[in-house]
Design a protein around this nucleic acid. Structure first.
Length: 606
RNA sequence: GGUCCGGUAGCUCAGCUGGAUAGAGCAACAGCCUUCUAAGCUGUGGGUCGCGGGUUCGAAUCCCGCCCGGAUCACCA
């Protein structure tokens, strides 16, 4: 039970006694006391001013006097400034809270709050949330946009786990379609049998190169045709290359063995490349789906819906859903030639997933450009009887933009994920060269490991600290910071604490704390630590790793300030020293936990 | 045009379930290492919170209108 929960009923009682009115929970507003006033927590008394028909200051004073006279001794002092009642809480309360936090192995995590209730009877099963993220196309390597997606998806999964959900991380790989045929065709025509082994290229990069090559050759053909007098639109349709690619797609759909085997081979190259990237990024999946396996399932679902009268068929044979009752348009589900569209595939994927897992909540981590798609998908899944359809979450995030606009794969204006991670690790290593005194006696391997954690930490924090909904800017010309409000700053704080704890000879236990008086910096830290569970809760409700970032930063700031002012190991009073060690240890643990929710590792030294 | 999202310091971003004088970091400048890691700490300067109305004791925050930027409204994914 936190401070507000303890104090709120006391305030309600005080207001009742003083003014004979029943105050509602909503009228009780707490906020942190501003630094310039004395106190730990502040009650806003404006809501009671009318009831009391007195000046705000007088009301605040009256309530404050009542709280102090309650006999518990919790409120040690108070002062009233206008309509704000600042309360000083007895220090023993904080010390007890600190001990409780230190003793709680899973502090900030909520084990099973989401008990599944059926027929009013709770079976205490854990609710299952499936989180889809990454969802790459197999025709090009991952870029910075994917990095944001992956980091957000992974972090959200961790955050929801901390909030008590059973989370299944999933990936839907878009492995079929015209895009991969383009790469395949270009490889056949211009590849001379190049393989990842023969060229030493990562498989996804190799395929990406041929995708770019296709586009280049295709554009040349279009230009050629236009020079012969054809208009642009016709030229785009008539260029031999695009026709060949389309023909290849037809052969793929017809299960042509030759095309299928090439397709399988090239996709394997891509997956090997993706696996490397995912591993370096530190993300993982519990279950991977492939569109080549789900799109037929989608067609079947649509046919079923059609038979059930949910959808209708037009004269040309195409199948549509009428969403006008939901305030939307009509939406195509199957083309006249019977082939499926994006929506059909997503329905099929949902079907398979629901067969595989008892999904209570489905979360799609997909860019905000697809908001309309998911609005439609939600309605369609609901109509088709999927329990999670209506309440599906499209975790919609903003684009990563470069100084000159959006990234475009075909135009080569992308920031490659592998390159970027390598660059960050390299930068981290460069910076660590100046730290010879703190990193002396460490093996080359350890140094590399620290650089990896720190470099990736800088990148991840840089991306995750921004509100996911917002577009964010990345300037490749300016390197990502390692100072200030950054991942490395927080990692550094952790490493500092670990260093102190290593040097602490014995873990003396805290006793006889009655006589202890808390330093303001100690108090601030304990209060910050107390906030952690509500931060985890909020991050889960809002689907926002940024909330966790802000907290981790604030916690690190509080610690550094404390560290600067208060000596830990050199504190002569044994009891005080024990308290500070306990604060330090709890802070380190909380930093590490918060960072783990972000998918960021913390080094023991740096 | 309809719908959705954003506009806060020179730059990158917090704050947005209404609360006291709008916060960080970067960049600039000035201090702090014989003492637990200086990737740190302390300080200075920097703002019509896009604009205009409204709601109220109180608005960056809520409501309405407008301006600017982005996304979306495909037999693309």
């Amino acid at each position: 039970m936190n401070l507000e929960q303890i104090l709120t009923p006391q305030v309600i009682a005080a207001v009742k006694e003083l003014y004979g009115v029943d105050a509602t929970d909503q009228q009780i507003q707490w906020q942190k006391t501003r630094a310039e006033f004395e106190g730990d927590i502040t009650l806003v008394v404006f809501p009671f001013v009318k009831l009391a028909r007195k000046a705000p200051q007088a009301v605040a004073q009256e309530i404050g006097d009542k709280l102090m006279a309650d006999g518990t001794g919790l409120v040690a002092k108070c002062n009233a400034v206008q309509g704000f009642l600042n309360l000083c809480i007895d220090q023993s309360y904080y010390i007890n809270q600190l001990k409780a936090i230190a003793a709680d192995e899973h502090y900030g995590h909520f084990p099973y709050p989401n008990a599944k209730c059926k027929n009013g009877k709770c079976k205490n099963d854990q609710m299952l949330m499936m989180v889809e993220y990454s969802s790459p196309n197999t025709n090009k390597p991952l870029h910075l946009g994917h990095v944001r997606n992956n980091l957000l998806g992974y972090s959200i999964a961790k955050i929801q786990e901390a909030n008590g959900w059973k989370v299944v991380k999933t990936n839907i790989v878009n492995d079929r379609g015209i895009h991969i045929c383009k790469s395949m065709l270009a490889w056949l025509k211009f590849g001379n049998g190049e393989t990842p082994e023969s060229s030493g290229k990562k498989g996804d990069h190799l395929i990406g190169d041929y995708y770019v090559r296709f586009d280049k050759e295709y554009k040349a053909q279009i230009a050629g045709l236009m020079a012969e007098g054809m208009d642009e639109e016709t030229a785009k349709k008539e260029a031999p290359l695009i026709k060949e690619a389309q023909e290849m797609l037809r052969r793929w759909e017809a299960n042509d063995p030759e095309v299928r085997s090439l397709w399988a081979k090239m996709n394997e190259w891509v997956y090997a490349g993706f696996d490397e990237t995912y591993k370096q990024m530190g993300v993982s999946f519990d279950k991977i789906y492939y569109e080549s396996n789900t799109y037929l399932e989608g067609k079947a679902e649509v046919e079923k819906g059609l038979a059930a009268g949910q959808f209708y068929r037009r004269e040309d044979g195409s199948v549509w859903a009428d969403l006008s009752k939901d305030g939307l348009d009509e939406k195509l589900l199957l083309r006249a030639d019977g082939t499926s569209v994006y929506m059909t595939q997503d329905i099929g994927t949902a079907k398979l997933r629901f067969q595989d897992y008892p999904i209570d909540k489905m979360v799609y981590v997909v860019g905000n450009e697809q908001e309309y798609h998911f609005k439609v998908l939600s309605i369609l899944l609901d109509r088709l009887g999927f329990p999670f359809g209506k309440e599906l979450v499209h975790f919609s995030y903003g684009m990563v933009e470069l100084p000159n606009g959006k990234m475009k794969s075909r135009e080569g204006t992308v920031v490659d994920a592998d390159d970027l991670m390598a660059k960050m690790i390299e930068d981290a290593k460069e910076i660590s060269k100046d730290k010879v005194n703190t990193l002396q006696g460490i093996t080359e391997e350890e140094t590399n490991e620290i650089a990896r954690k720190v470099g990736l930490g800088a990148l991840k924090y840089f991306i995750l600290k921004v509100d996911p909904r917002k577009n964010m800017l990345f300037n490749p010309e300016e390197s990502i910071d390692f100072n200030g409000n950054t991942g490395p700053f927080i990692q550094y704080t952790y490493a500092r604490i670990r260093s102190v704890l290593r040097k602490a000879v014995s873990a003396s236990t805290l006793s006889g704390e009655a006589g202890l008086s808390l330093d303001p910096k100690e108090l601030a830290l304990i209060r910050r630590l107390m906030d952690y569970p509500s931060v985890v809760r909020q991050a889960g409700e809002e689907f926002s790793p940024a909330v966790v970032c802000n907290y981790a930063y604030a916690l690190a700031c509080d610690f550094n300030s404390f560290y600067h002012d208060c000596s830990i190991l050199n504190e002569p009073d044994e009891n005080k020293r024990a308290l500070r060690l306990l604060i330090s240890q709890t802070t380190a643990r909380t930093i590490a936990d918060a960072m783990s929710l972000l998918g960021i590792e913390v080094p023991e030294r740096m």
